[in-house]
Write a protein that binds this DNA or RNA. Sequence first.
DNA 1: CGAGCAAAGCTACTGCCATTAGCTTTAAAG
DNA 2: CTTTAAAGCTAATGGCAGTAGCTTTGCTCG
Lengths: 191, 191
Amino acid sequence: MSPRAGLTTEAVVDLALKIVDESSTEALTLAKVAERAGVAAPSLYKHVKSLADLRRLIDLRVVQEMADALRTAATGREGAAAISALADAYRAYLLRHPHRTNALATAPDESDAELSRATHAVAEVVFAVLRPFGFDHVQAVHATRCIRAAVHGFAGLEASGGFGRPEDVGQSFEVLKTMLVQGLTNYAEKP
Amino acid sequence: MSPRAGLTTEAVVDLALKIVDESSTEALTLAKVAERAGVAAPSLYKHVKSLADLRRLIDLRVVQEMADALRTAATGREGAAAISALADAYRAYLLRHPHRTNALATAPDESDAELSRATHAVAEVVFAVLRPFGFDHVQAVHATRCIRAAVHGFAGLEASGGFGRPEDVGQSFEVLKTMLVQGLTNYAEKP
DNA sequence: CGAGCAAAGCTACTGCCATTAGCTTTAAAG
DNA sequence: CTTTAAAGCTAATGGCAGTAGCTTTGCTCG
């Protein structure tokens, strides 16, 4: 292996993700990561190019985890049930990790092949689930954007405490899912 | 008035908002604001309590502007047309000011009466537009959340470049609005 | 007109953080 | 047992937020 073998890039990202989950994205500093790793701050540069690079690695991890979660949710389901399961999985992930919302909102930089691939993987799951609706390609793109906007919008707002009122948020999400499924069905019938 | 009378809190927020619009929320520093104001950085504390306070003032401004924009869009319209106009206005505002998305996503702090009132004002517009649908109070809350989630989600993703594909984004938004209006109509008929 | 007072600004300083440069240690490989 | 490259360290720089305390200025009121 390597000398001291205490840290790896993976481990640094783990620690950083823990800080993000416990406080917030903005609260992430290399100084805090170094403290938790039991290491001097400059030592982190052996595993990570910069704070910006660490943030990118976090985004990558989050997008990959989301793709996995959605794939798992979709397997063995079809049509309306699959859409609903996808939505639930997305919401559950963001409720478990509220501070990860922004990682799923930012555009993947063109030049970043790895992150682009991960983002693409998420879209692929939605595309697959949409297949039985019989959309052509352009329609499928529109439909995917609608699903993503509605579900990400809802989960993101909920995760950041955006819904102040006491009425049951889960109920609201059920309403949203119903609208979505009906809307997709309608759109498939008369575009 | 006051000595030198060069700056006011308003003017500081104006300059700060310009910086946010030109670069990003994270790029906002008191140092940059001071430079643009032609003033030493510590002088800003005569007009603003802290960077966090300045950020709050920005959020407040944005939410108030959005409430105005939505009110304007809704006046003279009703039902489906009003919903559509609201959605268009929300999207247009965020397209004009992409870096202001987060100001509309964060929860208003309970203890912050002014910001809470502004947020409430936005919700009130949606509530008003929903009246002809004949929802009871709980249904109206669910419906408002769905509208906000879908529209904010879409506009926020679009504003941050989240839609990479070349297909017409405006077309996608039309699909979303159609789903929304149909969904609300359905929900009003059979909850 | 001439104090005087409070607001607005300034300089000097502290502390935190990212990042760079260059040195030291250590574990693995021969 | 020696070599070597990775991993870590200390020292230093520069940017920024925030605080303390001084100075200026313009309005207000005798």
